[in-house]
Computed example of a mutant assay.
Amino acid sequence: MQFIVGLTGGIGSGKTVASDWFAQQGIVIVDADVVAHQVVAAGQPLLAQIQQHFGAWVINQAGELDRRALREHIFNDPSAKQQLEAITHPAIRAEILKQLQAAQSPYVILVSPLLFETGQHQLTQRNVLIDATTELQRQRASQRDQQSHAQIEKIIATQMPRQHKQQHADDIVLNDGDLSHLYQQLATLHQQYLQYAQQATQPPQ
């Protein structure tokens, strides 16, 4: 059985930098955000379902999902967010499972900003939180995404509070320094995960 590690963190915490490092070690990465884009790509049945539910305005001129318009809509209407999730989450979960099972590496990492919120942690054997102070998150997100302060605050508000994530995580990586500090912590975890994966595949005595 494949040993699956969940990797999460709030906006601006450094999830992508961390998952990129694991990928460089030869570990297969299944990214929930990437999967969420794949299942609603142009021509996918799920896109037609979203259009049918919300209206033609959710499709842009290129025949693709108008993410910005939909994001603004669900930010202003919590019930619309629940409706969208009811349509998309089962398909996202099924595709994540498919990709996890097909992964060919000593262990596999499921990267998801909403790992705990969506119950995706139920698919994993171990969970690591890439952690940073809320102030650092705001600073990095504004530099990286050129998003407004209000947009960043809305995203932070929709994610599980930092303290709750810490309680759910098996491993916590504090990303409050330079890259070498981050990589040092990841290297230690990588060795542990290799051991866990090896133990998980050994037949019982």
Rank of each mutant, 00 (worst) to 15 (best):
G9L: 06
L114Y: 00
I27A: 08
A69E: 08
I11T: 13
Y107H: 06
A36S: 14
Q147P: 06
D77K: 10
Q163D: 15
H149W: 09
N175W: 03
Q120C: 01
V5T: 03
Q120D: 10
G26K: 05
S180P: 00
V39L: 06
I50E: 04
E64F: 03
A32S: 14
H89I: 06
Q166S: 08
Q82F: 03
A91K: 02
G10Y: 04
I155V: 11
L65N: 00
L123F: 12
A102Y: 14
Q147E: 01
D170K: 10
Q184C: 03
H168T: 03
I50V: 15
R68V: 07
I87W: 06
A94S: 07
L129N: 05
G119I: 02
T158V: 10
A94C: 05
A69D: 07
A69S: 14
A56G: 02
R140G: 15
K81F: 06
G26P: 00
A141F: 05
A41I: 09
Q61P: 00
Q198G: 14
A157M: 00
H53R: 12
A69F: 12
A102V: 01
V17A: 11
L189I: 00
V111T: 11
Q139K: 13
D176Y: 05
Q24G: 11
D170M: 12
G26L: 06
F116S: 07
T201G: 04
V58D: 08
F75P: 00
F116H: 03
H89M: 14
L179H: 09
Y196A: 13
L123S: 09
L129K: 04
Q205W: 09
Q143H: 15
V128S: 12
Q143Y: 14
P106A: 09
L194A: 14
Q83R: 07
V34F: 04
Q166R: 15
Q199W: 09
A103W: 00
V173C: 10
L186M: 08
L110T: 05
A56Q: 12
E64I: 03
A36N: 01
L47F: 02
Q151R: 04
V17W: 06
E95T: 13
D145Y: 02
P161L: 04
V30E: 10
I109V: 11
L100G: 10
H164I: 13
K15T: 02
V28I: 12
G9E: 08
H37K: 15
I109F: 01
L179K: 01
Q159H: 04
K81G: 10
A80H: 11
Q25S: 07
Q151P: 03
Q125M: 04
L70H: 02
L7Y: 09
T201C: 08
Q185F: 02
L46N: 05
D77Q: 12
V111F: 00
I152H: 05
Q163N: 13
L110Q: 02
F22D: 11
D66F: 01
Q2L: 15
L47A: 07
G10N: 08
M160N: 07
P161T: 00
W21K: 07
K165W: 00
F22W: 05
Q61V: 15
H149P: 14
Q139E: 14
Q185I: 01
L84C: 09
A102G: 10
Q195F: 06
Q202K: 08
L100V: 04
D176Q: 11
I50G: 11
G177E: 03
V173A: 05
H53G: 05
K15P: 02
T133W: 02
D77H: 12
L46I: 03
S180T: 13
A200K: 02
E95F: 12
G6Y: 10
T188I: 03
Y107E: 04
T158I: 06
